[in-house]
Design a protein around this nucleic acid. Structure first.
Length: 845
DNA sequence: AGCACGCCGACT
DNA sequence: GTCGGCGTGCTC
């Protein structure tokens, strides 16, 4: 038997399957999806089995054997192996990178080299020397140890050690370790015949009273029990129990346990709530799709507070009743205990939770619950879309428009596309939920008046237009800040917002305040000469960090001390720009003495669990205002919030990105949705310098459809998604002139490839006119823009240039870019040119 | 990516 | 005459 193995060497030359012999002893263990260790060249690496065959084309004498299979059960399913292959083509990444991203970090191989004792001392070697014997003994005693450890012990014997390695007295071996750590807990095992315990207890010395107590307890409760628990229960020391184990009366063993991040927490079980008419209609559609078991994608557009979560919950219920499994994706930022509670409350310990704040070990254990089929529901952030279920029935993506569903490093996948693909593989249903669906998604529902979608599968649109229990959407007031300035109000709060805040404080209601700070980081500038502190290695200004009083580069980590005098002109007028949340907090304190503000931004939420802590405090009404950046806009639900203030809606509008209007609209709509979700009515004040902009206007009227119509027109006009799709190709190199030449050469090559295809297609068109065959990929179009300098033109001392490829049609464009890159890399093999490809990028930088 | 094999400069 | 520089090419 032979296996095709993708090895853990992410390089273009090793980006293919290698054939290995499956030794008879491992035959039962090696499956498609198995993780294996294989000899590869002079070393041993990890790999993944992607195919099994009875035959092989490779000459048998060239083949090596699989060395070991580290897992009891293959960590990947056949479906996921196929998906990884699809990903490598779709996102132009190495196949092994796609496979790795599906696994918890704990299963990533850690390579170490170590030393072992080699051949026995030979004649003429210098092994009789005492220090060499000592080294040999030390290594023999340790079995295998690292070079560092040996040098630590014998700091002056570097030469001797080297000599011993050369002579073969010591041999170098490659060690491959998992990063796994199983948590082990000492557990007490009483013997099978409990009666013997009582007897034994009587034979114990009279003074061993504590030991007798333990035996009495165990004879009544003969199940294995954790040592710590036993000690707690009957107030004995570890020594007492140990003594019993030494007498052989009980057994004390380490057993492996699962870490449970939610251990000790009970979740009140909730029952399905009655659905509103809208919810029922929507649920019925989803339900029948799940029952039918054919791949289908729904786009559920429901206004904030329309009760999408209850629809999710009941859909999952339906899915479970059919014996299938479900995945729920939520943006990382809204994966709060509140959210988890809702799912744990409904499905109890059928739920595994995966998010980045878990430790590696906790993550691994949650993941193993899936492998062992102990859970049938997974709730998690982006990467949970790869949960290794085998009877997947439903994938829900909440807030589907969120850009955090796109992974920013390789493989640069979008969880939405992965979900659709997995649904295709499993006959599963996908529900994309949002109050403000992305233009890409709404376009694929083909309900828009213009040209229908060309991409398959098309999505089915479901809408929920009203909030549960007929609660109204909050009223939104747009405040023109230019007028405020004219009227002499130079404060960051308009008169209207100021009033509204006062009123809430008076009524003891709560306020959410959003400072939309994207693309507007706090930088430092000299007011005299205009000098801006910027990174010496990257083309970007440094960001000021209050906590450390340092200026830091977000791209390379470079940091420097806060400056008091301008390094350029010596002036003292150095100011921090970019209204930070701190300044808003200060201002609030000045204007409303005694106001209690919780500030949530990067400075206050880096600590583990701090995010939850603040939200809990706010929920318990320990503060009047929740002030923060994007993170206060999402998914929060507090009954006493009746006012939402947006300090400056424009900041995200002014970012030079084709999605800035869409992002602004989404953010405003989301944050407005935080107000008046329960009995009390809500109000929203949006301060802006561009009140006429359609993203602000539409958001204020809760008018998604008008926004989409307007925005889509501009996208069509400019040839941006969803009308055309994009591929961003970024080149980087230390030398700018070389880089420019290279990027241009790439663009030329890609254009040639495109022309080839187009020429071929027009020939085919002619043929098909003669009635020979159907025209193929008639919708194909592709154009190369650039190269131009990237918006951030230098990072870590490397200059950056980029090409934007606009295209329509299926995977052909990606294939051509792949070909161009391959050709190009071959031409420039020895250069240190880096090329990065982002298919369907979220940001053009 | 590693790592070995292989062909040209400054040293015992 | 050798040690070692890193260019080129392969890994089942």
């Amino acid at each position: 038997m032979f296996a095709k193995v993708i090895v853990d060497v992410p390089a273009k030359q090793t980006n293919r399957a290698f054939d290995y012999i499956v030794p008879p002893a491992l035959k039962a263990w090696v499956e498609v999806g198995s993780r294996v260790t294989v000899p590869f060249g002079p070393r041993v690496v990890q790999g993944f089995v992607v195919e099994l065959h009875e035959e092989t084309d490779v000459k048998i004498e060239r083949l090596k054997s699989i060395q070991s299979v580290p897992d009891l059960v293959p960590p990947l399913t056949v479906e996921l192996v196929g998906l990884a292959h699809w990903m490598s083509r779709t996102y132009l990444c190495h196949e092994v990178t796609a496979l790795q991203v599906m696994l918890p970090g704990a299963l990533k191989a850690k390579y170490e080299r170590g030393l072992q004792v080699g051949i026995e001392p030979q004649m003429g070697s210098l092994l009789e020397l005492p220090e060499r014997l000592a080294i040999l003994d030390f290594v023999r005693c340790k079995g295998t140890l690292s070079m560092e450890a040996l040098m630590d012990r014998f700091p002056h014997e570097g030469a001797a050690i080297k000599d011993m390695v050369l002579s073969g007295a010591l041999v170098e071996v490659q060690m491959m370790k998992d990063r796994i750590s199983m948590k082990k807990v000492l557990t007490v095992f009483p013997p099978k015949e409990v009666d013997s315990l009582v007897e034994a207890g009587e034979k114990l010395p009279a003074k061993a009273r504590k030991q007798k107590e333990v035996l009495d307890y165990l004879s009544l409760h003969p199940d294995p029990i954790r040592l710590t628990e036993l000690m707690e229960l009957i107030q004995v020391g570890a020594g007492t129990v140990k003594a019993l184990a030494d007498r052989g009366l009980i057994e004390l063993k380490e057993i492996e346990v699962m870490r449970d991040p939610y251990a000790g927490r009970t979740f009140a079980r909730t029952m399905p709530l009655p659905l509103t008419d809208e919810q029922s209609t929507v649920y019925a559609e989803i339900r029948s799709a799940i029952v039918e078991g054919k791949p289908s994608v729904f786009l559920l557009q429901g206004v904030t507070g329309s009760g999408k979560t209850e629809v999710y919950l009941q859909s999952i219920q339906q899915c479970l009743e059919l014996g299938k499994e479900a995945i729920v994706l939520v943006p990382e930022i809204s994966l709060t205990p509140q959210m988890v509670e809702r799912f744990k409350g409904r499905f109890g310990n059928e739920v595994a939770v995966l998010h980045s704040r878990l430790s590696q070990g906790e993550r691994y254990d949650e993941w193993r619950k899936i492998m062992r089929k102990q859970v049938r529901v997974v709730i998690g952030a982006r990467s949970a879309v790869f949960a290794p279920f085998q009877r997947l029935g439903l994938i829900i993506i909440d807030e589907e428009h969120e850009s955090s569903y796109k992974q920013e490093d390789s493989p640069k996948y979008h969880a939405r596309e992965i979900a659709v693909q997995r649904a295709e593989n499993n006959g599963a249903t996908v529900v994309l939920g949002s109050a403000t669906p992305s233009l890409e998604s709404i376009h694929r529902t083909s309900v828009l008046p213009d040209h229908g979608t060309t991409e398959s599968p098309s999505y089915r649109l479901l809408t929920m237009k009203s909030r549960v229990e007929g609660r109204p959407l909050p009223e939104v007031f747009i405040v023109d800040m230019r007028e405020e300035l004219k009227n002499g109000n130079r404060s960051m709060f308009s008169k209207a917002l100021h009033h509204a805040i006062e009123e809430r404080l008076h009524k003891k209601e709560q306020i959410v305040m959003l400072l939309n700070r994207r693309g507007y980081a706090t930088f430092v500038m000299c007011r005299t000469c205009g000098y801006v502190s910027s990174c010496p290695h990257c083309d970007i200004s440094l960001t000021y960090h209050q906590s450390t009083r340092m200026l830091r580069c977000h791209y390379c980590g470079y940091a420097e001390r806060e400056v008091k005098l301008c390094p350029s002109c010596g002036s003292e007028h150095i100011r921090h720009f970019g209204t930070g949340t701190q300044r808003v907090e200060e201002e609030l304190g000045k204007l409303f003495p005694g106001i209690r503000v919780i500030r949530m931004d990067v400075d206050t939420t880096t600590e583990k669990g701090s995010h939850e802590k603040w939200l809990t405090m706010f929920g318990q009404k320990q503060a009047d205002v929740l002030l923060g950046t994007q993170m206060v806009a999402k998914g929060l639900d507090f009954p006493d919030v009746t006012l939402v203030g947006v300090i400056a809606a424009d900041t995200s509008l002014n970012i030079p990105d084709f999605r800035s209007a869409e992002r602004t609209f989404q953010l405003l709509t989301q944050v407005a949705g935080r107000a008046g979700r329960h009995q009390k009515l809500g109000e929203v004040y949006v301060q802006t310098y561009t009140p006429e902009h359609y993203s602000v206007q539409c958001a204020s009227r809760h008018d998604y459809n008008s926004f989409v119509t307007e925005e889509l027109h501009s996208r069509i006009r400019l040839g941006y998604p969803p009308y055309q799709r994009l591929i961003l190709v970024t080149f980087s190199h230390e030398q700018a002139p070389f880089l420019i030449r290279a990027a241009e050469a790439f663009a030329v090559r890609l254009k040639e490839l495109i022309e080839d295809v187009q020429r071929k297609q027009s020939t085919e068109m002619l043929l098909s006119l003669d009635g020979f065959e159907e025209p193929q990929a008639a919708d194909f179009s592709m154009e190369v823009l650039g190269p131009v300098a990237s918006p951030i033109s230098r990072i870590k001392d490397r200059y950056r240039f980029q090409c934007v490829v606009k295209y329509r049609g299926d995977g052909l464009a990606v294939e051509l870019v792949g070909k161009a890159v391959a050709y190009f890399e071959q031409q420039n093999a020895k250069e240190k040119l880096q090329i990065s490809i982002d298919v369907d990028p979220q940001y053009l930088m």
